[in-house]
Write a protein that binds this DNA or RNA. Structure first.
Lengths: 205, 205
DNA sequence: TTGAAAAAAGACACGGGTGTCGTTATAATG
DNA sequence: CATTATAACGACACCCGTGTCTTTTTTCAA
């Protein structure tokens, strides 16, 4: 009846495995990474790993889920500070609390890979769609509210602006994946895109 | 000494194989496609296929090369009609002669896949970089000339605008790959991006 | 300290994709 | 029509990743 190992320990182990898996995925990408690589990185046997995850896809989905959860928490966090303008809020959602325009989530390339290589798989496709529309709603929300409050111009459709943000973010992540750091100009491109947004929303600042 | 089959026939055969391969790649994507799939699609044996191509990567590079060549020819074509404004030229380069805003190269998803999954491979990385900078120069060129001629505003750096075009195109291709046709809104997003460009370049039209 | 139950280990068989190689069919040439 | 180069065939052996299954070890509770 009673479990032979504490729940805390199990969760701890699981977290360790996920951490190791992340390292592997960042290094090798989703497709080229194997369960064996993860076992080696985590210093665990085949059986040990399969105790927690039933496949590579299973591991990856756990990482994605975790990432989404922390992202949602961060969004909550930002929302609490209600003194912000909609524009500041939008910028925070785009580039995070620290506004690091030249940083990129190291998992971003693998994430793209995961969804693009699995685009013919119904399960993964559905999952990708969910994430897309969740991301869309995040941006759409604040833009719409900004327009309603009069802070933003309503010249353009809020949804299309929100969609353009996603495309921009995805495109940047893609180029980041393929090109060398110095070739991509993350910061300058982000600034350029911010200018587009300023013009479209007629933000003074 | 003398070849036992005409050169034309050989080239014809090769073209057929490439055509079949394209069909397969469009259907299954790069990673999930196998040489066997291509053999079946082309009604050719293993030996027959390997007569022309030494690996899947080899096949794909041939397709990419072909695509790039026709793209360059198209660009030449457009350049000949010198009566165009720089803006019209830019639009043609972005969306082709027909300005079909809701069309997407069916190979685009596989192309992204090819480069993103191979991002740790030196050869493929180098190849991707070449293509990026070639694409960049195409857009950069016309924007710079437009600015120099006074047709475009020089408020923003021509290179960054050109880069933003690539990111946009890549991001759109990515979303096209992952989402269903009806979820993506190709046309509306293209129009939105054109508006960004119009504002940045201060184009009346 | 001992026993039970679960976690971790690692050997194993399987499947699937790859590229090669000896053989056969075919097309050009004399 | 015969010859010969080579295109096309398809069997084969190889490799590698996967997930399972049996065995061993560890942990907790009595």
């Amino acid at each position: 009846m009673s479990p032979k190992v504490s729940k805390e320990h199990k969760e701890q182990r699981r977290a360790e495995l996920l951490e190791a898996a992340k390292t592997v995925f960042i290094e090798r990408g989703y497709e080229r990474a194997t369960m064996k690589h993860i076992m080696e990185e985590a210093n665990v046997s085949r059986g040990g790993l399969y105790q927690y995850f039933s496949s590579k896809e299973d591991v990856y989905e756990a990482i994605l889920k975790e990432g989404l959860e922390t992202a949602m928490e961060d969004t909550e966090e930002v929302l609490k500070k209600e003194e912000l303008t909609h524009w500041a809020l939008l910028m925070k959602r785009l580039f995070g609390e620290e506004q690091e325009l030249d940083e990129m989530d190291p998992m971003a390339p693998s994430n793209l890979e995961f969804f693009i290589t699995g685009r013919n798989d119904e399960r993964r496709r559905k999952y990708g769609k969910e994430r897309y529309f969740y991301g869309l709603s995040i941006y759409h929300d604040v833009i719409k509210k900004g327009q309603e409050s009069g802070e933003f111009s309503s010249k353009f459709d809020s949804e299309m602006i929100a969609r353009s943000i996603i495309s921009f973010v995805d495109g940047l992540a893609l180029d980041y994946a393929i090109l060398d750091r110095e070739d991509i100009k993350l910061k300058e491109q982000s600034i350029m895109f911010i200018e587009y947004l300023k013009m479209a929303l007629e933000v003074k600042e």
